[in-house]
Every structure is written in structure tokens, then in C-alpha cells.
Write a protein that binds this DNA or RNA. Structure first.
Length: 663
DNA sequence: CTTAGGG
DNA sequence: CCCTAAG
């Protein structure tokens, strides 16, 4: 078994042979081993299989990645900045073009990893160039972004280049333009630059009509985008952005910078959906699910078009997920939105499940649990007192991890414990309220601390996660139906209530975080991987998660998606398919969350009723998701007996009125 | 080991 | 989320 980095020398040779034109920066240095863009650390098993590298292995090469990465995007950076400042001016255009060209070749070469692909890509380049010539006025192909995305995914960890952010950021707004089926490759840049202006000034008239080239080809963009759905963050206020941020990442932010927030959110919404495409699209603050599939179209488009998607996927050849996502698409195809029976198509065994569902499982009252609980309560009689400390905020914090025996604490005193949170490899101490464990006291506190504070392990993990982020090679066009729908719909406030600030159980000091994680667009990996957080060694030897990790919007979407794919009740399946990269979130969690979603979706949200007015409500779930949940619930005959049938007729309409449930 | 339910 | 009982 040998550890290899990507593909070596032979490929480089190939790359040069195939004569990718323009200057090649990465190739020019012969010593380079790893390609920052798509190379992925793998191990070659005896049988020739490629397996993801272990943490250690990743760590070994980490430096290379960093080094290269720094220099790579810089070029494009200049171009982008230029774009922004120049707006639509023609000079800006040419600038862009040239910079694009550079990034082009630069990025392309690394991809030569697979020779066949390379040649293919090259063809594309040629094509693109021709196109460029033909459409000089319009702009240039938008390749760089795809690469940058990949790049950032791979090396997220280490440093964020403004260029990337800007790029992404600038592209987000593009999405609000309805994707056209047209395959033309260009225009995006003009739009981009135009958009950027609009970004800063949301009030600038209708976005669609704003730019001359309002028709944008989806396939010309990285499928990363089309994949993930579209979101317009432009018009959101800071507060809204905060809310969205929280919904997305499950934590608060104090950053006031709109741009920052927007790109973080954008990244979160896109990047973290690594496994499969969503059937949802966020348009104008609304989340709508696209009913039709475009997988074939897209695949087609990519082939003929030479989209970035192709290139991007080079690194991840035949990941198991691609298959699944395709499956998904097929299913989605077969059953449009409502009355979707695709699930049955998927698995013939569903019928059985249906039968099983008929009879609820009956269950004896648990014994041990009850006994234990009562025992605890009788023994230390003050759980109430302790929990009341929650409201009083933070008092003294002890630098060390110490728990006072509950009985000892004077009634007036607050019991506060500091827990060492490791976030992104940085140990951050946050005060939190000690919760009396119902059972199984921690075995070894020192071990815990060591685990938490050792940045290495975590970092390695992060790296791995980042590297293993993958996406499926399909993009989606908004189907006409949903397009029309969304267009006609009134803009719906995404957030019913303003985020509560006070009761947050543990407020992460964002400032410190900002230092360490700061301008990385690592949200996805952040979300994915810091499972060093709040886990507790159990007597059984396993590490058990402790305490609440807020569900992010992405997760919810993925969950819904998963359910639609596999049906309810196959949680382990769903976990494998859609939550592969989320080490936390057990199948049980999925189940629980689904239960809650169901509850939320069927809990009528009478407009006047308290829910909306409650300020402390947690982050709302976009109505569209709830709608989807309901549909799924229906088709799986999971409708809660009480509220089920009665409400259904009005669902499609009422959902738009019903603001939301809560995450 | 996975799922269903109750807390 | 946590915990257990059923499969």
C-alpha cells in the first residue's frame, strides 16, 4: 500500500503533450507534486482501489496544498477585482477576458490528471475560444469559478483568498436570473460586473432587466451552483442575513459585513450540500423545489458544452455518490411534485413498509430509564436550580473544567462550567451550563480535554473533510413550472421572527472564531467536521455526542431530499446517501428531525397566532420545505391523524401563507 | 445494528 | 437530543 498524491509525473507529461495553450503556472514548476485544484489524497489499496487518505496522510501533504494554493488564484483575483471596480466598462471586459484566459490554462493543467479528460477539456477550450471570438462583445467563459470552487473545497482549511470569495459572491446574484435552456456560454461576466454594482445597492431597479445579457446559461457555470440551488441574498438586511446565517450554520454571528455574511451563507448553502443535488432552489428568499429533472439535459449540456462541471469532477471520478444522485434524479423525474410515487419505484419493498406502518409498534414503558431518572432526582434534588442558572447568564467562569456537585452549590450561586470547545482546531472556552448527566458520568475528563484541545486531530479531520467534499455532476435547470410559480409568488420574508439572541445556550465568541476561521469559506467543513465538539467519552468506549447541534438549513434540505429518495423509515440509508459527510447526525437524529419537521409542517401556523410573533422563535424553515415535507408525509401515509387530511386540500396555496416552522 | 417512540 | 424496546 502506498500513499500517492493525485496522479504523478506521467500525467504532467501528458498535460504538456496535449499542449494546453497559454502559460502554465502550476506546471512550470517541475517539483510540484500535488495539484491544489483537484488532486485528492488517496491511498492505493492492494487491489487497486483508491481509498481516501487518512488524517495523517493528509497532514503530510497539507503544506504542498497550501503553498500552491496561495499563488494560484491570485491571478484571477486581479481579474475579478478589476471586474468589480470597472463595472461594465469595456475596458473591464477585456481585462476580464485576459484574466480569464490565464486562470483557464492555469487551472486546466492540473486537471490533466486524467488524460482522456484532458483532451476532452482541451477541445472544450478550443470551443470556448472560438465562442469567445464570436462573441467578443459579450465576455468570456466562466471557467475559473469552477476551478476555484474545487480549489476552495480542497484546501478550505488553510487560507481563504479574497478572490475566491469575491468570485463566488459575485456569482451568487447571477442565480436569480432564471436559468435558460440556451447553451450559450458567455455573458456571465458582463452580468457579473453589472450585478456587483447592484449588490451593493439593492434598490437599483429590477435585477433581471438590469443587464443586457440577462440570459445566462446554466451549464456555463459550475454545476456547483446549479446544483445547489439559487439564492438571492442581495436584498436581505443585515439582520436577515444573520438569521440566515444561523439557519445555515447553526450558530450566531456578530459580523456586520454584508458581503461577508452573504458569501458565507452562499458557501454554506452550496458547499455543504456535497453529496447530491437538492431539489430545492432558493429564489427570492423562497425555497422552492424543482419538480422536473434536468439531469439528462445537463449531462448533455456538459458533454457538448464542455462545462466546468466536467472539469470539476475530474478529481472525484466515480464517487459512489454520483450514482445515487442520479438515482435520485430519475425518481424525481418520474414523479413530479405532488402525488409522487417515485419511492415505490425506487424500492419494491416499500409496500411492506406501508403494511408495517399500519400497526404502530407498541412499547412497554421503559424501566431502567425511569428508575434512574427518579433516582437521580431524589439524590440531588436541585436540577431545577441548576437549570435556572441558564437564564441568569454567565457569571464566574472557571478556567478549568470543573463540575460542582450539584448539592453543594448554594442556591444563589450559579453553577457554571467551562467547556473546551474546539472549533476549527482552535480551543475556545465557552461558558455553559452544566447539565446533570442522567447517568454514566464522564469517565476521564482529562482525556476529554486533551481530545478537545489538541488542534492537530481536529485540523487533520477538517482537512480530510474538506478534501473529501464532493459534488455530483449534475446541474439543474429550474423547471418551468417552479419558475413561473416562484416568479409569481410574492416575496416572502424568510424569517418570521427575529433571531433570539439571549437564550442561546452557548454563544460562540465569533470574534475569536473570526480570527481562526475567519475569512475562510470553510463553513461546510466547519459544519461537517468539528465533531471534536462536545463529545463525551462513554463507559462503553465510544464517543457520544452531547447536547444539541442545531440543524442547519442545508441539513434539513438534505434530509427532506433523502426522505424523498428513500422514503421514511430508512434512516440509515438516508444517512449513508445524504449525510455521508456529516459525521454527526446519526440515523436516529435524522429520524428525530424528521419527526419534528413533520410536526412543524403540519402544525398550522395560523397567521395571527403566537408563533410568528414570538420573538424567540428559532430559525424558521422556509415554507417550501415544509410543503415538501408534507407532500412526502402524505405519500408515505405518515400524516398525523389529527391534522392530516383536513388541511391538505389547501396545502399548495396555504403553504405560501404559512410562513414557516422552525428548525 | 437499525428503527420506532417516549422523555 | 437522549434513552430504550422491538425487530
Amino acid at each position: 500500500m502506498e500513499t500517492v498524491v493525485g496522479v504523478e509525473g506521467s500525467d504532467e507529461g501528458k498535460c504538456e503533450e496535449s499542449g494546453v495553450e497559454k502559460s502554465s503556472s502550476s506546471l512550470s514548476s517541475p517539483k510540484q507534486i500535488a495539484d491544489p485544484v483537484v488532486y485528492k489524497l488517496v491511498r492505493v489499496e492492494g487491489d487497486g482501489r483508491l481509498v481516501p487518505a487518512t488524517d495523517d496522510e493528509v497532514m503530510e501533504v497539507e503544506e504542498f496544498l497550501v503553498d500552491e494554493k496561495i499563488e494560484l488564484p491570485v491571478v484571477t483575483d486581479a481579474g475579478n477585482v478589476e471586474c468589480i471596480s470597472n463595472e461594465e466598462s469595456s475596458s473591464g471586459k477585456s481585462h476580464k477576458e485576459s484574466s480569464e484566459g490565464l486562470s483557464h490554462s492555469e487551472n486546466t493543467e492540473p486537471d490533466a490528471k486524467l488524460s482522456a479528460r484532458l483532451e476532452y477539456i482541451e477541445e472544450m477550450l478550443q470551443k470556448v475560444k472560438q465562442e469567445e471570438k464570436l462573441r467578443l462583445a459579450c465576455g468570456s467563459p466562466d471557467h475559473s469559478s469552477a476551478f476555484m470552487n474545487v480549489d476552495s473545497q480542497c484546501t478550505d482549511q488553510h487560507d481563504k483568498l479574497p478572490a475566491i470569495d469575491k468570485k463566488l459572491q459575485s456569482e451568487i446574484p447571477l442565480q436569480e436570473i432564471v436559468p435558460s435552456s440556451d447553451l450559450s456560454l458567455d455573458d456571465s461576466h458582463i452580468n457579473e460586473s453589472a450585478r456587483i454594482g447592484e449588490c451593493s445597492k439593492p434598490s437599483d431597479g429590477p435585477i433581471e432587466s438590469g443587464s443586457p445579457a440577462s440570459v445566462i446559461c446554466n451549464s456555463s457555470k459550475p454545476d456547483f451552483y446549479t446544483l445547489k440551488g439559487e439564492i438571492c441574498l442581495d436584498n436581505l438586511s443585515i439582520r436577515e442575513l444573520h438569521g440566515l446565517f444561523r439557519a445555515t450554520f447553526g450558530r450566531e454571528t456578530t459580523v456586520k459585513d454584508k458581503l461577508w455574511l452573504k458569501r458565507r451563507i452562499a458557501m454554506g448553502l452550496t458547499n455543504s450540500c456535497d453529496v447530491s443535488t437538492t431539489t430545492f432552489t432558493i429564489i427570492d428568499n423562497k425555497l422552492v423545489n424543482k419538480g422536473t429533472d434536468n439531469s439528462f439535459q445537463n449531462a448533455d449540456g456538459m458533454l457538448t458544452e464542455g462545462s466546468d462541471g466536467e472539469v470539476k469532477n475530474l478529481g472525484y471520478e466515480t464517487s459512489p455518490t454520483s450514482h445515487s444522485s442520479q438515482m435520485e434524479n430519475h425518481q424525481i423525474v418520474s414523479g413530479k411534485r405532488l402525488g409522487n410515487l417515485s419511492v415505490e419505484l425506487d424500492c419494491g419493498s416499500d409496500d411492506l413498509q406501508m403494511e408495517h406502518r399500519g400497526a404502530k409498534r407498541v412499547r412497554k414503558p421503559t424501566k431502567r430509564y425511569i428508575e434512574e431518572l427518579s433516582e437521580v432526582e431524589s439524590r440531588d434534588y436541585t436540577p431545577k436550580v441548576i437549570s435556572s442558572a441558564k437564564n441568569t447568564g454567565q457569571g464566574q467562569t472557571s478556567p478549568k473544567y470543573c463540575i460542582r456537585p450539584p448539592g453543594n452549590a448554594p442556591l444563589n450561586e450559579r453553577t457554571i462550567v467551562t467547556r473546551l470547545d474546539s472549533l476549527g482546531g482552535s480551543g475556545v472556552q465557552v461558558p455553559f451550563v452544566s447539565r446533570v448527566r442522567r447517568s454514566r458520568p464522564r469517565k476521564n475528563i482529562m482525556a476529554l480535554m486533551k481530545f478537545d484541545s489538541s488542534g492537530m486531530g481536529v485540523a487533520a479531520k477538517l482537512v480530510q473533510e474538506a478534501l473529501s467534499v464532493r459534488s455530483s455532476p449534475e446541474s439543474e435547470h429550474a423547471d418551468k413550472d417552479s419558475k413561473v410559480r416562484s416568479a409569481s409568488e410574492q416575496i416572502q420574508p424568510l424569517f418570521a421572527a427575529e433571531p433570539e439572541k439571549d437564550k442561546r445556550r452557548s454563544v460562540i465568541s465569533t470574534i475569536e472564531l473570526g480570527k481562526n476561521l475567519g475569512l475562510k469559506q470553510t463553513d461546510s467543513s466547519e459544519d461537517n467536521s468539528d465533531d471534536g465538539i462536545a463529545t463525551v467519552p462513554t463507559a462503553k468506549g465510544g464517543m457520544r455526542r452531547k447536547h444539541h447541534r442545531a440543524w442547519t438549513l442545508v441539513e434539513v434540505i438534505k434530509l427532506v431530499e433523502g426522505v424523498s429518495k428513500c422514503g421514511t423509515g430508512r434512516w440509515s440509508e438516508i444517512k449513508r446517501l445524504s449525510f455521508a459527510s456529516y459525521s454527526y447526525r446519526t440515523s436516529v437524529d435524522l429520524k428525530d428531525k424528521w419527526r419534528n419537521l413533520l410536526k412543524a409542517s403540519f402544525a398550522q401556523t395560523p397567521p395571527d397566532d403566537g408563533i410568528n410573533s414570538r420573538k424567540h422563535a428559532s430559525v424558521p424553515i422556509p415554507a417550501a420545505i415544509l410543503l415538501k415535507v408534507r407532500e412526502l408525509a402524505e405519500m408515505h401515509a405518515q400524516v398525523p391523524p389529527n391534522l392530516g387530511p383536513g388541511k391538505l386540500p389547501s396545502v399548495s396555496r396555504s403553504v405560501h401563507q404559512t410562513r414557516s416552522g422552525y428548525l
